[in-house]
Design a protein around this nucleic acid. Structure first.
Lengths: 242, 242
DNA sequence: GCGGCCCTCACCCCCGCGGGTGAGGGCCAC
DNA sequence: GTGGCCCTCACCCGCGGGGGTGAGGGCCGC
């Protein structure tokens, strides 16, 4: 279960609150948010009372409020929160095609509308639209979302003039100047992404396990990866893996 | 260096030949091709003579021919190959904006044109257009390319009527019916993708290392992953990681 | 010709990963 | 209430991962 201790993460980053009366929804959304590098703490709130009492002592960088069609408790809670804290960035989370909630959300001061089925990357885009983004961020190219190509999962309110963007220290390590991987290194990296052991990769390529280890060490250095898991992640982020 | 032994991979899959006089180019392209699941063997050829002699004994599923602007040796080799083996699927590889080579390639019977800077995913798309694709493939959704959204790196020739698609047995393991990860599991998976050890993840979340291991085991089961490297890869392919 | 990179293999070492099992508590749906 | 899932922690065990180093051969660019 999600208790107070769960909210703590050692990472720096923005604090995001997820409000929804339905536990499944808020936990699911929260679990996708934690995959974002510039999100440090994710906290979940399930009832209006604790939302308001929490807001008395501290405020999140963003408050995400879940809505249900024909149920106005979510929007009511958001309205209350906004009344008490006018500058609070609020995102409304709802069904992909709930145009009514979109309109209602924007009308009463939410900064945008997010589909509940958004991937982490789309959520990141939504958060960036409310001024929250990694330090020194440029629009990612290699490392953007597949879904961004399709139907937008984002409906933005008017651009927020005058609100200074909250720049968050990124935990992303400085990327080396993109050394190209050799063919062998790509083969080894591909094998790693398929859960193969060094010995197994070696057998499939008719090579010694020690040779695979050598290629692995070199590709770790080139990519700046600590281990195979990070190497695979970097491969995907650079777009050289699929 | 790339010798005969390098061509062997234990994987089933299509055989792709890469022809280019420039070693850097052919090795670079080959290294990106090996990341594709349905590509089994990648062989590189550097001169016209060995290309033709190889074709006497066996043929690839696809031949990729690199071209240089104002240098026609590549196209000449491709023409020779096509003359000797009329049905051979040939893709021409060239500069992103080399319209002239595109026209020339299509004119003499190539099945398409591929930009030399294509990512593995784009190359896969190109290969799929010549009828080569993983068994049972549907157009990927979660697991498609960022680049596909941008300028197309593919210029196709006319649709190939009558040529039966070469279906390749996929090495992709059956995916479990997409069990959702809990928030803790996402946090652990995210930490893994950043090269963190279990102990380190535990410290950052104020949890015991044993607890992290437990979450890790469960997320491996849910994702059907053998180890953290494969788990990270599956996370990216499902679109839950960024 | 020399340096640089790639490919190959070997040996040593240590620690962390991954698996199994058990167990207690909490929340929630049925 | 009962079962199911989540979160937490502990102990045991074995093997594989990752780092270091050295070394030989080949191809290539300068």
């Amino acid at each position: 279960m999600i208790d107070d201790r769960m909210r703590a993460t050692g990472n720096p980053g923005a604090t995001v609150w997820v409000y929804d009366e339905r536990r499944r929804v808020r936990d699911d959304v929260a679990s996708r948010l934690v995959a974002l590098s510039f999100v440090g703490r994710v906290e979940v709130v399930g009832d209006p009372a604790s939302l308001m009492s929490r807001l008395d002592t501290r405020a999140p960088d963003v408050l995400i409020v879940g809505t249900q069609r024909a149920v106005d408790t979510g929007l009511t809670a958001a309205t209350q929160a906004l009344r008490a804290h006018p500058g609070l960035p609020v995102l409304v989370l709802g069904a992909p095609d709930d145009a009514e909630s979109v309109r209602a959300a924007v009308a009463f001061g939410a900064r945008g509308y997010l589909r509940w089925d958004a991937s982490p990357i789309e959520m990141g885009l939504g958060l960036s639209r409310v001024g929250l983004r990694p330090e020194g961020a440029r629009i990612p190219q290699q490392h953007s979302s597949p879904q961004l190509a399709g139907a937008s999962s984002w409906s933005g309110a008017t651009p927020l003039a005058g609100s200074a963007p909250t720049t968050v220290r990124s935990t992303v390590r400085e990327a080396a100047p993109a050394a190209a991987l050799s063919m062998r290194e790509m083969q080894v990296l591909t094998g790693m992404s398929q859960g193969k052991s060094n010995a197994q990769i070696g057998r499939e390529l008719y090579l010694s396990e020690d040779t695979i280890k050598t290629h692995a060490r070199r590709l770790f250095r080139k990519l700046g990866a600590k281990d195979r898991a990070e190497a695979v992640a970097i491969g995907f982020r650079r777009g050289v893996m699929s």
